[in-house]
């Protein structure tokens, strides 16, 4: 992330170290104005980010040490400071840990699954730029553009055990019906399936774009050296799209850690809590039961987890490079 490669766009073909040296030289005279101008450009966005991104974290952190509930919102003077109590309760709450474990499970299975599927789709789409393939691209991108509310309506009806499409298809194929959303294990799979379905689109477009940036001459050269298609793919193509892959892995990782939408609209965390992810657990405690203090403590734990996992992933990648 710190060291982005130069894109293949011809205009920007200048080596990076050169451009930096020049800017430093020129900057020695102009530095004050330029720094001021930099802030000028970034400021509107930074203000919004500070107000709507960072300040809520501070508020959540502060609230996590209180017993704030809906009564406290109405009468702030009744809010009590409870120290680390919310965190201690959290540590002893089996529901929190089962939500944590479920989320971790989705990360472990989901990140590689989405990455591999998106890569496969991107590789396939990259073979050809014809009209048919452009149509396929649109089809793959469909799920990513659909509103959550629409997704919930469509999939609920498809999964439905009585009149849903899936069980009818299974029936046609002579297979037994599945209780898609009402059996704990199959609900976990069903909810994950929808999430994967939704994530493939954007990620494969990103990877497709990266694949199109792989220079043909390198592939030709490798082919002349006698490398087969598999070796060419592993040793020429993959290293070239390393950055895009890392990007996909990281955003997918964060996405799964924040996993919320699909169980929220499809199962509401059920049946019997089987699909309650960490975010959904926090949402339910915070906004169904109005336990804002407790939910804030959980949010901070989630935030720290995400930050830690992201940092570890970045470290690992840097070590690999």
């Amino acid at each position: 992330m710190q060291n982005p490669p130069v894109p293949v766009g011809a205009k920007a073909g200048q080596p990076r170290h050169l451009s930096r040296r020049r800017s430093v030289r020129a900057g020695s005279r102009r530095q004050p104005t330029s720094r001021w101008a930099g802030w000028g450009f970034a400021l509107p966005a930074l203000v919004l980010v500070a107000v709507f991104g960072l300040m809520p974290i501070l508020v959540a952190a502060a609230v996590s040490f209180t017993d704030l509930d809906i009564g406290g919102l109405a009468h702030p003077e009744t809010i009590r400071l409870v120290g680390a109590e919310n965190y201690l309760t959290l540590a002893a709450d089996p529901e929190f840990w089962s939500a944590f474990a479920l989320t971790a499970g989705y990360v472990v299975v989901g990140v590689p699954l989405i990455t591999v599927l998106a890569l496969a789709v991107a590789t396939g789409l990259n073979r050809n730029g014809g009209r048919f393939y452009r149509l396929l691209r649109t089809l793959y991108f469909l799920p990513a553009v659909t509103a959550l509310v629409a997704i919930s309506v469509i999939w609920k009806y498809m999964f439905n055990g009585q009149f849903g499409l899936f069980n009818w298809l299974l029936d046609l194929a002579g297979l037994p019906a599945v209780n898609w959303l009402s059996d704990p294990t199959s609900a976990q799979i069903a909810v994950g399936m929808v999430a994967v379905w939704r994530a493939i689109g954007l990620n494969s477009i990103i990877l497709l774009a990266a694949l199109q940036g792989v220079p043909d001459d390198q592939l030709e050269a490798a082919a002349l050296d006698g490398a087969g298609p598999v070796r060419r793919y592993l040793h020429v193509v993959l290293p070239q799209i390393r950055f895009a892959l890392g990007f996909v892995v990281m955003t997918t990782l964060i996405g799964w850690l924040q996993f919320f939408d699909e169980p929220f609209v499809l199962t509401d965390g059920g049946p019997v809590g089987a699909t309650t992810s960490l975010s959904l657990f926090l949402f339910k405690r915070g906004f169904r039961l109005n336990e804002f203090g407790y939910a804030s403590a959980g949010s901070i734990v989630l935030l720290v987890t995400i930050a830690a996992v992201t940092l570890i992933q970045l470290r690992l990648r840097r070590a690999n490079d």
Partner: peptide
């Protein structure tokens, strides 16, 4: 801010 779940905010 990419790491913050919307429910927190």
């Amino acid at each position: 801010t990419m790491m913050i779940p919307a429910q927190v905010t």
